[in-house]
Simulated assay, not measured.
Amino acid sequence: MLTAAYDDGADTTAEFNKNVLSALNRRLGAGLNPPAFDHVALREADNKWIEMRPFLPAAQAGTAVFVMRS
């Protein structure tokens, strides 16, 4: 149930992540294509957290991908 909050049917979190990619384009000239990314939300039970991230399918190979860690 907790995973569903981050992978909702209205795509709220997915749109948030794509907005982050758009901000990287505007501010850093990243050259990313936000619509090409899928949204992934995973429950990491051992560590008791939810991971959510934009995921670039293999069909988009050659596109720059940034990894952000807090």
Results as ranks from 00 to 15, higher is better:
residue 26 R to K: 15
residue 10 A to H: 11
residue 16 F to G: 12
residue 54 P to I: 01
residue 8 D to G: 01
residue 19 N to T: 15
residue 47 N to M: 04
residue 58 A to R: 01
residue 38 D to E: 15
residue 38 D to V: 06
residue 15 E to W: 02
residue 32 L to E: 02
residue 70 S to H: 06
residue 54 P to Q: 02
residue 15 E to P: 04
residue 26 R to H: 14
residue 59 A to M: 07
residue 32 L to G: 02
residue 30 A to E: 01
residue 2 L to G: 01
residue 37 F to H: 00
residue 9 G to S: 09
residue 52 M to Y: 06
residue 25 N to Y: 12
residue 35 P to C: 07
residue 6 Y to F: 15
residue 65 V to C: 04
residue 45 A to N: 14
residue 67 V to C: 07
residue 20 V to Y: 12
residue 5 A to P: 02
residue 13 T to A: 12
residue 49 W to A: 05
residue 24 L to F: 15
residue 42 L to W: 08
residue 45 A to S: 14
residue 54 P to V: 06
residue 49 W to N: 15
residue 13 T to W: 04
residue 43 R to M: 13
residue 42 L to G: 02
residue 7 D to P: 00
residue 16 F to P: 03
residue 56 L to Y: 03
residue 26 R to M: 08
residue 27 R to A: 13
residue 50 I to R: 02
residue 22 S to M: 15
residue 34 P to M: 04
residue 51 E to I: 09
residue 28 L to H: 01
residue 54 P to S: 14
residue 43 R to T: 14
residue 54 P to R: 08
residue 20 V to F: 06
residue 28 L to F: 08
residue 1 M to S: 13
residue 30 A to D: 02
residue 52 M to D: 04
residue 1 M to R: 13
residue 59 A to E: 12
residue 63 T to L: 09
residue 20 V to C: 09
residue 3 T to W: 10
residue 39 H to R: 11
residue 42 L to M: 13
residue 32 L to F: 10
residue 4 A to M: 01
residue 51 E to D: 10
residue 49 W to Y: 15
residue 34 P to Y: 07
residue 11 D to W: 04
residue 23 A to D: 00
residue 21 L to H: 10
residue 31 G to D: 05
residue 69 R to I: 11
residue 33 N to Q: 15
residue 50 I to W: 00
residue 46 D to R: 13
residue 26 R to P: 04
residue 15 E to C: 05
residue 69 R to C: 08
residue 38 D to N: 12
residue 59 A to K: 11
residue 65 V to F: 09
residue 64 A to Q: 00
residue 45 A to K: 04
residue 31 G to N: 05
residue 68 M to G: 09
residue 68 M to L: 15
residue 56 L to Q: 01
residue 16 F to E: 07
residue 5 A to Y: 13
residue 64 A to F: 08
residue 47 N to Q: 13
residue 55 F to E: 05
residue 67 V to F: 00
